[in-house]
Each structure stands twice: as structure tokens, then as C-alpha cells.
Amino acid sequence: MIFLYAFLVGGLICAFGQFLADRFKLTPGHIVCLFVVIGAALDVFALYDRLVNFAGAGAQLPIMSFGHSVMHGAMEAAETKGILGIAGGMFTLTTVGITSAILFAFLTALFFKPKS
């Protein structure tokens, strides 16, 4: 069942992004930044957690989950270190994603020829 929910939720988020692109003439960059902010905002009252529980990868793959995990790491560190933890724990959960993205991007750029 979670496979169906992943398909539906992930698809709906993408359709919403496409609607914003068509209706307000936004570039992909604008939409991605907006989605990151929305993801962080939805975590204030732990709403995005419910979506992750409900849809699994359908909620973890959209870029909203990047803002969500930034918030999550910050709150986790804030529990022990207070306000300083918000700045300190921000990237604890997203490090693996960012590191692998940089690593793979660098290696790909090194070994492939640009197509244009």
C-alpha cells in the first residue's frame, strides 16, 4: 500500500510544482527554493513527519524533505545544546546527501564529456 501512497504523494507534489511554474511563470530555481522553505515551515508543527510516515519515499524524495531534515537536525541538537544547537545541528542529517551529491557530481564531471 505504501507503494501506491509514495506514487500518489510524490506525483502530487510534482504536479503542484508544475502548476506554480505554469501559473506564476516561475523558473525551476524559484520553485525548488520555495519548496525547501515550505518543507522547513511544515516541520514547525511536525506536519511533514506525518507525510513521511504516510508516503515513505514519496515524501522523502521531493526537495521539501531537504528543508525538513535541516529543521530536524537543528531541533535534535537544540534539545541538548539550546539555541546554539540550531546552528550546529542543521546539517547532521543532510550531510550524507550533500557529500554524495558533490562527490558524484565531481567524478561525473571528471570522467564524462559535456554534451551540448
Binding site: 505504501i2 507503494f3 509514495a6 506514487f7 500518489l8 504523494v9 510524490g10 506525483g11 502530487l12 507534489i13 510534482c14 504536479a15 510544482g17 508544475q18 508516503a55 515513505g56 519515499a57 514519496g58 522523502q60 524524495l61 521531493p62
Partner: peptide, 13 residues
Amino acid sequence: AFFFGGLVCLIGQ
């Protein structure tokens, strides 16, 4: 967008 986005999420799941 719905179909292809959902498809990638299905692959992830």
C-alpha cells in the same frame, strides 16, 4: 509531472 514524479518516487520506494 504527476506521472513521472510519482514514478521516480515509486522507484525510490
